[in-house]
């Protein structure tokens, strides 16, 4: 399995103009590998995730680019073909907000059978549901319970079980632990780590939390205002960040056992209807030069597999 996204663009066409939520993003996910997409709210990271599942809500439209899964051109498939052959069977998703991702009026077991009905056209069997629940550390008896009978952590586990039920090769997890308490969050992250070891699945973790991302993603993509500004291995991004945005995000992340002054990034993320000319980060960047206001920097390879888009790096 190999997913490759090339120069992918998703715009929301509103009455005020096109919101360029994802504006030329390229990324690659190898088999059994996990990547992380980091960014602030409104940077386009969730739109990117929904785009990969062909679930972009109106008035959003794909404005360009290509997505290949192995050698299948995903964007050339009809919605019906995508639903039958790709969604959930090959790419599935763990949605943000476990509290609301389950339907309150159906038992958990029934909801886990739904993917069989919708994407395989078969009845599905309870044994598979039970296996899937056990895989995520739940008792099989949870099948017969309603979502309100489960705690937040159990609900999130059930949602993960649902994502795994058709044996996909790629799972996209969009803020999988945001609404959870710290201990439950650590337990769910442990579960993801165990699943990574036990199954040959690739993951895309989408979060705003650099601390979470460091625990599970081998490659990190830093997204700002619809664009990837830096990408590289986990170690390179955390130990040797090159883009000022990445550096400042890291300096703004509080650490438990370090006595360091917390930094912040002045200003606010730009309006994506008319993003700033040149580098989109320049209004907030302490190193901005005149070229940053005119010319958009391209991703430059710093060393093996570590790329950043900044004029400082030339």
């Amino acid at each position: 399995m190999m997913l490759s996204v090339e120069d992918y663009k998703v715009y929301y066409y509103t009455s005020d103009g096109a919101v360029k939520a994802v504006d030329g993003v390229s990324l690659k996910v190898k088999k059994g590998h996990s990547i992380g997409v980091i960014g602030e709210s409104g940077c386009g990271k969730s739109t990117l995730a929904f785009g990969m599942l062909n679930l972009i809500p109106r008035p959003g439209k794909i404005a360009g680019g290509k997505i290949f899964l192995d050698n299948i051109d995903l964007l050339s498939l009809s919605p019906e073909e995508f639903r039958k052959d790709i969604r959930w069977k090959r790419i599935s998703m763990v949605f943000q907000g476990a509290m609301n991702a389950l339907n309150p009026v159906y038992k958990v077991g029934y909801q886990l059978l739904e993917p069989f009905l919708d994407h395989l056209g078969t009845e599905g069997d309870e044994e598979k549901v039970a296996k899937s629940l056990e895989l995520v550390g739940l008792d099989r008896e949870v099948m017969n319970r309603y979502p309100h009978e489960l705690s937040g952590g159990m609900k999130q586990r059930a949602v993960i079980a649902m994502a795994l039920i058709l044996n996909p090769s790629l799972v996209i997890a969009d803020e999988p632990t945001t609404a959870l308490d710290v201990i439950v969050q650590a337990q769910i992250m442990n579960l993801f780590k165990k699943l990574k070891r036990a199954l040959d699945i690739s993951f895309i973790f989408i979060t705003h939390d650099l601390s979470i991302e460091a625990e599970v993603a081998e490659d990190i993509y830093v997204m700002y205002a619809g664009k990837i500004v830096e990408k590289g291995s986990n170690f390179e991004i955390y130990k040797n960040p090159k883009h000022p945005y990445t550096q400042m995000l890291l300096a703004a992340t509080p650490r438990l056992h370090e006595e360091k002054k917390l930094e912040f990034i002045p200003g606010i993320p730009p309006d994506l209807i008319s993003p700033p000319e040149g580098c989109r980060f320049h209004p907030r960047c302490p190193h901005a030069m005149s070229i940053c206001k005119q010319k958009e920097p391209r991703l430059i390879e710093i060393e093996g597999n570590h790329w950043a888009a900044c004029h400082l790096l030339r």
Binding site: M189, N190, S211, A214
Partner: peptide
């Protein structure tokens, strides 16, 4: 259980 941005600890199962 508090997560920290330490890349060396990738994929390490936390003892809670």
């Amino acid at each position: 259980a508090v997560p920290e941005p330490i890349p060396e600890r990738i994929n390490e199962i936390k003892q809670i």
